[in-house]
Design a protein around this nucleic acid. Structure first.
Length: 943
DNA sequence: TCGGGCAGTCTTTTT
DNA sequence: GACTGCCCGA
């Protein structure tokens, strides 16, 4: 019989023993009696490298410690324990992602057939996330997609959902799992053959689900230290090779896998239900009676494994399937001896006694399972043999674990201990009074924010104003819509409505400002109505390009951004002008169809234009302007494009500039209808020639215009909206709409002041861990868990230069993230577009997006409003709107923060809070006092 | 013609 | 703080 423990961790995983290296694993495996051991953490490149150096292949994907090391270490293995140890490459991956609107956190055990396959899988994972920060990496990837990736790289991969019943991180977990395996793995469900039952459940509990009949049940230790190896394990009758194991775990018959060694499930940390903080432990029936709520704090209970099994079970307790594999419940030897000696399982005396047993009897699992009781009595005394007998017979006293608290298994009653006292060699040790473990006072966690509806609008129905905007026909329409008012929804519904009324979809034009917005819009249109998918969606730039290409009869040569900068730099030097100023000024000029360059720029303007002409090239800004010019110059062209569309819709109208409006007028010349939507309070592209005034001038540009206001905000909690609207009040506008929050009161935005950008980044990372409900179980067990997925969270900054420390802190915390606009450096993976991560992006880039939680960092003087060194004075109004945009991205939670000192472009020193902060009404924010970590540790020590 | 040293510069974005 | 471009000496 071969004992296999396939799920362990290395020292490269969080909260694991530093001694977890190949040599110590080899030693520990023999002491336990394990013949086949997973290496753990093969996804960690450094660990994998160490394994490659220290292990040699024995053929068929199994490895052993190199002979030199084995010889050198042999003396350290107690004689009766010496036996061969084979390794298989194993690892665990944590996926955290949103599926069907619910945050899912699932752990998967993966066995790779050989080093080459492990490296292939790692190469793919490396492109999708951070696999170096932790031996058990966290990826924002759907578990199904992870399986697909593994199958792509190694079709023979063994993929096992890990500890399937634990509440926080598992396939069937009550907090973030699924009700059926197929919900998780979809079309790839057939590739799953085995399930890991975890410490808190045993096979008997799993047999109660007929849905699991077709799966092999395996048990592993998930050890974080050598001592915990094989606390659960598998009994194999097959050869110690990868293919043999793969066969044993997938063959429909029983061959190969004879059974498992199990914890008493009660001893697991999540067997029963309850609240650790409230001291409430409940049986499943009690939980049901209480409606799942804690009788002390009233919040939802942490529902444990037993409850969860009962919820999904379709068979009664005690059901025994035909040909049920065997399983044995065991208690770790140091716990057995600890109880015999009335000492803690990790105390010196117990350790010595265990050592003696290993040296005289054999490996731990042999002692627990097979050693003759007489022999145990001879070495350890009658109490020990009686303890082991009871364990083998299942005569134990159990106290179920709950909400992260381990359960207790007792072999003796106190009276028995008295009676047995004084007998046997192990018993001679004087019992010490058990020290009461002093529990650290838990910091009181903040109340969990009430979940707000993030729905963009009220279900399927449009509100009356939205409806009016959709149904309006005739005169040009301008819709002024605050954040979260359902702009996109109105545009999509309007376009679809026009098509349904009989408009030819190809003659309906939807204009956006970015390609991303265009793509999203096209997707939404396709979802709304099959014919609406044919509506033309384009950016102003793409449209200009199309018009110009037609006018010129050829494809355009467009000067790249770097070439343009180089050219301007060259010319600026010739005319003794600052290149950055020249670039900006040229761009601004080109936002008009007929620019009038002022004297200072005129020579450069002319030189630049002739340089372009010489190359037969255009720059980006030319696309719209030149298209408008071409339409002015050619009546034919103007006629063609004036008749091209029957309906034109424009998104984000506050971003349009004079050249774009001019182009728009040409498109409407043949009588097409116009509907524009936007929010002048979100005009943040003044540097590109767009101004809020352009929006307010709509009625002059398009006479007879009809205006509609959308005032119901479906995105932000009321507290967030109030703070944001308060900010704007410093910039009065009689036309401004007063918005009403539909999503409930929500919680106040948080304001925090940190000492440095690094401290600020660390604070953000810690908050994100909280919001996602912890990324590992230790974090989860600390308190109330948030339920956001990484993709629900964004960190917004004024300058890209702020991204670096944030990225570093998030990487360190193992949070999947992406920095917008600087991805193409690394090779992209086909699964990249599906990966879900925390977004780090500029406030500008965040316009039009929404997130459940938003961090606005660097709310500091000089940074917001940004004051460029020796540049023009900042446009306070525009920067205020920028902060407004940033704040209104947040649905549930908004965090504003600053560093008290920051060095920007080399100049360091203290920095005040942003003057814009003073525009937010006092009381609209909740200031969070942040204690630095060093200080916090001191307080902790003296408490 | 090379390279070391020094001064000047540093947003936000569109195909 | 990091990069570029320019000047100057060898």
């Amino acid at each position: 019989m071969l004992i296999a423990d396939l799920h362990i961790h290395s020292s490269y995983s969080r909260a694991t023993a530093k001694t977890l290296n190949p040599e110590n694993l080899w030693l520990a495996a023999q002491r336990k009696g394990i013949g086949l051991l997973g290496t753990g953490d093969f996804t960690h490149p450094v660990w994998l490298q160490e394994l490659e150096q220290k292990l040699v292949e024995t053929g068929d994907g199994a490895y052993e410690l190199n002979p030199e090391s084995a010889r050198a270490l042999a003396a350290e293995v107690p004689g009766p324990c010496r036996a061969p140890v084979r390794f298989l490459l194993s690892g665990e991956i944590s996926t955290i992602y949103k599926r069907h609107g619910v945050t899912r956190k699932v752990h998967s055990l993966i066995l790779a057939p050989d080093f080459a396959a492990a490296r292939r899988i790692n190469a793919r994972l490396d492109r999708l996330g951070n696999i170096t920060s932790d031996g058990r990496p966290i990826l924002g990837l759907d578990t199904r997609d992870l399986l697909e990736l593994c199958l792509d790289e190694a079709p023979e991969v063994i993929f096992i959902p890990a500890h399937i019943w634990t509440p926080w991180f598992s396939l069937f977990g009550s907090k973030s799992g699924f009700d059926a395996l197929e919900e998780c793995f979809d079309d790839l469900s057939g590739h799953i053959h085995a399930l890991e039952t975890g410490l808190s459940s045993d096979p008997a509990m799993n047999w109660r689900l007929s849905a699991l009949d077709r799966y092999k049940l395996v048990s592993n230790s998930d050890a974080h230290s050598p001592a915990k190896l094989a606390r659960e394990a598998n009994l194999l009758t097959c050869e110690p090779t990868y293919p043999a194991l793969a066969h044993a775990l997938s063959s429909p018959g029983g061959e190969g896998l004879a059974g498992t060694l199990e914890f008493f499930p009660h001893e697991g940390k999540y067997h029963l239900d309850g609240h650790r903080k409230c001291g409430v432990r409940l049986e499943p029936s009690e939980t049901r009676e209480l409606g799942g709520l804690c009788p002390v704090c009233g919040k939802p209970l942490t529902v444990g494994v037993l409850s969860r099994v009962e919820d999904l079970a379709d068979r009664p307790e005690g059901y025994l399937p035909p040909n049920a594999p065997n399983f044995e419940s065991i208690v770790p030897l140091n716990e057995v001896v600890g109880e015999v000696m009335q000492r803690g399982p990790a105390t010196k005396g117990v350790t010595q006694a265990v050592e003696q047993l290993l040296a005289e009897v054999g490996p731990e699992l042999f002692i627990l399972r097979q050693a003759p009781l007489e022999e145990l009595e001879r070495v350890g005394g009658p109490v020990l043999s009686e303890a082991v007998r009871r364990m083998r017979a299942g005569e134990v006293v159990l106290e179920g674990g709950f909400d992260g608290e381990f359960g207790v298994v007792k072999l003796f009653t106190p009276q028995e201990r008295e009676q047995l006292k004084g007998q046997g060699s192990l018993w001679r040790e004087a019992p010490s009074t058990r020290r009461q473990l002093k529990k650290k006072a838990l910091t009181k966690p903040e109340p969990a924010p009430p979940l707000l509806s993030l729905a963009e609008s009220t279900g399927d129905r449009l509100n009356p104003e939205q409806q009016q905007a959709v149904a309006h026909r005739g005169a040009p329409l301008i819709v002024r819509a605050g954040p979260g008012a359902g702009k996109t929804r109105v545009l999509v519904a309007r376009a679809a409505g026009l098509v349904e009324e009989g408009a030819a979809p190809g003659r309906v034009l939807m204009i956006t400002f970015t390609r991303k917005a265009a793509e999203e819009m096209a997707g939404r249109l396709a979802g709304e109505h099959p014919a609406a998918a044919l509506v033309k969606v384009s950016t102003f730039h793409a449209l200009g390009r199309e018009i110009l290409a037609q006018a010129l009869g050829r494809e355009l040569v467009i000067l790249g951004e770097t070439e343009r900068a180089a050219l301007i730099k060259e010319l600026a030097a010739r005319f003794e002008l600052r290149p950055s100023w020249a670039e900006l000024t040229l761009t601004r000029l080109k936002q008009q169809v007929h620019p009038e360059p002022e004297a200072e720029i005129a020579p450069l303007w002319q030189a630049y234009e002739s340089a372009l002409a010489e190359r037969g090239a255009l720059d980006l800004d030319d696309l719209v302007r030149r298209a408008a010019l071409a339409l002015e110059e050619s009546a034919d062209l103007a006629h063609t494009w004036g008749a091209r569309f029957d309906h034109v819709l424009v998104d984000e109208y506050q971003d349009s500039n004079q050249a774009q409006v001019s182009l728009l007028k040409f498109l409407l010349a043949g009588g097409a209808s116009l509907a524009a939507i936007g929010d002048p309070d979100q005009a943040i592209y003044g540097f590109r020639g767009a101004s809020r005034e352009g929006f307010l001038r709509f009625a002059q540009d398009f006479p007879g215009a009809m205006g509609i206001g959308l005032t119901r905000n479906y995105r932000n909690g009321e507290a967030i909206l109030q703070a944001a609207q308060g900010l704007l009040a410093s910039d009065p506008d009689p036309g401004r709409l007063s918005l009403s929050a539909q999503a409930g009161p929500g919680v106040k935005p948080v304001w925090a002041e940190l000492t440095s950008p690094k401290a600020e980044a660390a604070w953000v990372a810690a908050k994100i861990v909280e919001l996602t409900g912890g990324l590992d179980s230790r974090q989860v067990e600390r308190g109330d868990a948030g339920e956001l997925a990484p993709r629900d969270i964004a960190v917004l900054y004024r300058l890209h230069a702020q991204a670096a420390p944030l990225a570093q802190a998030l990487a360190q915390a193992g949070i999947p993230f992406q920095v917008a606009g600087q991805e193409p450096l690394a090779e992209t993976d086909p699964l990249d577009f599906k990966a879900q991560r925390v977004s780090l992006m500029s406030m500008h880039a965040a316009k039009g997006l929404e997130f459940a939680a938003v961090f606005v960092v660097g709310v500091e003087e000089g940074l917001l409003p940004y004051q460029p060194p020796n540049g023009e004075p900042a446009d306070l109004g525009e920067e205020r709107r920028l902060l407004y945009v940033a704040m209104t991205r947040a649905g549930q939670s908004l965090f504003l923060s600053r560093a008290k000192a920051r060095s920007l472009f080399g100049v360091g020193g203290p920095r005040a809070a942003s003057p814009l902060l003073g525009d937010i009404p006092t009381g609209a924010l909740r200031t969070e006092r942040v204690v630095s970590r060093r200080r916090a540790r001191q307080i902790d020590l003296f408490a």
